[in-house]
Design a protein around this nucleic acid. Structure first.
Length: 417
DNA sequence: TCTGGGGTCCTAGGACCC
DNA sequence: TCTGGGGTCCTAGGACCC
């Protein structure tokens, strides 16, 4: 892997403009390589050089991260675990350790913030940087990209790949090309040549379904897409998406790097090891999910206007039901009240359920709250007290009596909490 | 091959209001 | 009597991203 480092680097001379001229290629996309798997190797050095897979330890898991040694066997992210096992029976399968990933991610963010405040985290292991204001301190974008790679490797011990470009899309695609452990910079005049040959699937917003629709039109590459009139595209994918795709394909992407955006929803869901059909058991799961969502809302200081229940049946069909509440709430008892009512109202009782989820949307920050908190105050106080107990004695120290059975049932099973 | 969990965004129809 | 137009909100479903 190390042998590939820096292979595709475009020389700095291509990027720097004469003084006074704007440096256009100032967006960096930084992406740590095989992040979860790399953290597991840091935690246990004996895993180094082995095929390591995070996820897929349960009966229904998918691969969440695979080391490059595992990828050599054809193992990919989001692949069902059973298939990954078949491809490489000797791979080490690890359950995810999100606390550790979060800690390494915080460190990652600190390293990036030491370069510029304009850091937009995309996930735990990935971020955009706008370094147009960092020239005097750290030099041209490509020099900064090299510094980021050094700092991340020295500070965390994990390799990362960096893409440099004039837009988010180009920077993102450049970092993908740079993987693993590399750096690719694309200048403004090279954007067309860079984008045109890529498969349409590479673009943001083109997934499996859209790629299939496009291929029926004979559209396979980004270049094909750029040549397709938006009106033709619109019949397939809708007005908005058509304009969006046509712009991206021609290198037009005006999205800025935004350091912080308020969350729009908070949710928890769980796929069960086996399909459930017992009504009481399902209601207990809905209560447990409501508890988690409520705790998150209070911790982050939001109240939700809308509660959504998600139910995936054994045959994978997915139903959602949502309800807008007045006043907004951060109280788990309220979330449960609505979610359980919506569950009971579903047609066709006694169906086998594969997954349940509870989501809170229409979030209002504490500052935006009206004074209309007349209902729910009592429960809110109770749950705040539970939050304090959890903080002192660990999550789950205090819980509704209805959940005690659930906890006992799960002890000693696959549940590690 | 048999499909996780956390999110964002879009579409489309219906209700409701002016 | 047989039918407006626009705006906004709500709900259900689905594609997509990491």
């Amino acid at each position: 892997m190390a042998a590939r480092a820096g292979v595709s680097t475009v020389s700095e001379a291509n990027v720097v403009r004469t003084p006074g001229q704007k440096i256009l290629e100032s967006i960096l996309h930084v992406d740590m390589d095989a992040f979860y798997a790399s953290v597991e190797v840091l935690k246990d050095a004996s895993l180094a050089g082995k095929p390591v897979v995070v996820g897929g330890t349960g009966t229904r898991g998918v691969v969440m991260s695979a080391s490059y040694e595992a990828r050599a066997y054809g193992i990919r992210n989001a692949m069902p675990a059973v298939r990954a096992r078949r491809l490489c029976p000797d791979a080490v399968f690890m359950p995810p350790d999100f606390e550790s990933y979060q800690a390494h991610s915080n460190r990652f963010r600190e390293i990036l913030l030491a370069i510029t405040p304009t850091v937009e985290p995309i996930s735990l292991d990935e971020a955009f940087l706008d370094v147009s204001g960092a020239y005097l301190l750290f030099g041209a974008p490509v020099a900064i990209a090299e510094k980021v790679r050094r700092d991340v490797r020295d500070g965390i011990g994990i390799a990362c790949s960096v893409g440099v470009g004039p837009t988010k899309l180009v920077a993102k695609l450049a970092s993908r090309k740079a993987k693993p452990d590399g750096l690719v910079a694309v200048t403004g005049e090279d954007v067309d040549a860079f984008l045109t040959p890529l498969p349409a699937r590479a673009l943001w917003g083109v997934g499996e379904k859209t790629a299939e629709l496009l291929s029926r039109l004979g559209v396979r590459t980004v270049g094909d897409l750029a040549r397709t009139p938006p009106a033709v595209l619109a019949r397939l994918v809708g007005e908005q998406q058509a304009t969006n795709l046509n712009d991206l394909a021609r290198g037009i992407d005006s999205r800025r790097v935004v350091a912080y955006e308020a969350p729009k929803s908070v949710s928890h869901e769980e796929t069960f090891d086996r399909d459930l059909d017992d009504h009481e058991e399902l209601l207990r799961e809905i209560l447990a999910l409501s508890q988690k969502v409520g705790a998150r809302l209070r911790e982050d200081g939001y109240r939700a206007r809308t509660v959504t229940l998600k139910v995936r049946l054994a045959n994978f069909t997915t139903l959602t039901r949502s309800r807008t509440t007045d006043p907004p709430t951060d109280v788990a008892a309220d979330l449960y009240h609505h979610a359980s009512e919506m569950f009971r109202a579903l047609p066709g009782a006694r169906r086998r359920v594969r997954l349940l989820g509870v989501a809170a949307t229409g979030l209002l920050a504490a500052g935006e709250q009206q004074l209309a908190l007349l209902r729910g105050e009592r429960w809110s106080d109770v749950e705040r007290a539970v939050d304090r107990i959890d903080k002192r004695f660990g999550l789950g120290s205090a819980m509704p009596a209805a959940l005690l059975d659930r906890r006992r049932e799960r002890r000693g099973s696959s549940d590690r909490g």
